[in-house]
């Protein structure tokens, strides 16, 4: 197994700040894995994303210690422009994520491919495909500035995945979306995983993380405090002390355990509760 993203003892301090936002972080993500970064606001999740994408230290100055290795190459050895092809980054604020030079969504999505020098005929095919995938075909002629938050979030995601990067870093892509829209985004991410992409996602919606992600990184005050497969991390009693949301079913299961109900295992998806309560026969005739 090859590591796609490898961080070794990474610490980072913003230029005028005394305190490190990232403290001695080490982890490694294999190619094709879907890893979710969770943690409360201010714990350093977004800065970590910026580091993987190379905006730290290429764009945000400040002090970066340790090594960030993307696909066997140190991030300091990449040019900023080269990383664009390798790591796609959809960031948090959907209202600012437009190129500002395109009149319609079709051209907006095509912009990255133009910059990569892809032949025009191929651009058209790829944009068509992505518009369909992200379900925004109906927006193709709209001005990107006139979209709602949820629509912008989809356009931002489409604009990045059309570039077909090997690694996708996605920071809270569903904050403006309704539950169905959120589910659709997770389905798209799943599809990207099936295509062999390595995915790093920041999200607060634990039920969906439990359903879709492979591994978890738990951030707390700039430190990486826990890491491992999703199920193991949620099952670890240590998780509770970081005051982070559990998947709803896990929260219920933990309370049941406290009330003395024995569970065969700790469920993280809704449909596992019956199993965990050893009541498969009840659920079976549903």
């Amino acid at each position: 197994m090859t590591a796609m993203i490898d961080l070794k003892n990474v610490s980072y301090r913003y230029p005028v700040s005394d305190d490190s936002v990232l403290k001695n972080i080490s982890f490694s993500i294999e190619k094709g894995k879907f890893t979710a970064i969770i943690g409360n606001n201010g714990s350093g999740k977004t800065t970590l994303c910026n580091t993987i994408r190379g905006f730290v230290p290429h764009f945000y100055k400040g002090e970066l210690d340790g090594e960030v290795i993307i696909d066997q190459t140190k991030i300091t050895d990449y040019q900023l422009g080269q990383l664009g092809e390798k790591v796609g980054y959809v960031f948090q604020n959907p209202f600012i994520q437009v190129s500002g030079v395109k009149d319609n969504v079709f051209e907006e999505v095509a912009y990255g491919l133009e910059n990569l020098g892809i032949p025009v005929e191929e651009i058209k095919v790829r944009v068509e495909e992505v518009l369909k995938l992200v379900k925004i075909e109906y927006l193709r002629d709209k001005n990107p500035f006139e979209l709602s938050g949820g629509q912008r979030q989809r356009v931002a995601l489409a604009s990045i995945i059309v570039m077909d990067p090997e690694i996708l870093v996605i920071d809270e892509p569903t904050s403006q979306l309704d539950p169905i829209g959120t589910q659709q985004i997770f389905e798209i991410i799943r599809l990207m995983k099936e295509r062999g992409k390595t995915i790093v996602l920041v999200e607060h919606k634990m039920d969906l993380i439990a359903e879709y992600a492979d591994d978890l990184l738990v951030m707390h005050k700039g430190e990486l405090v826990m890491q491992g497969p999703v199920r193991e991390v949620f099952a670890d009693p240590e998780f509770e002390k970081y005051q982070i949301q559990y998947p709803h079913v896990t929260e219920i299961a933990l309370q049941l355990q406290q009330s003395g109900i024995p569970l065969t295992f700790l469920p993280i998806r809704d449909e596992e509760l019956a199993d965990a309560l050893n009541r498969t026969e009840v659920a079976a005739h549903d």
Binding site: D270, L273, R279, V282, A283, D286
Partner: peptide, 16 residues
């Protein structure tokens, strides 16, 4: 309305 009921409702349904 294409709403998804809250997780608890879904669990309750699964548990009959």
């Amino acid at each position: 309305s294409m709403l998804k009921p809250p997780a608890v409702a879904q669990m309750a349904k699964l548990l009959d």
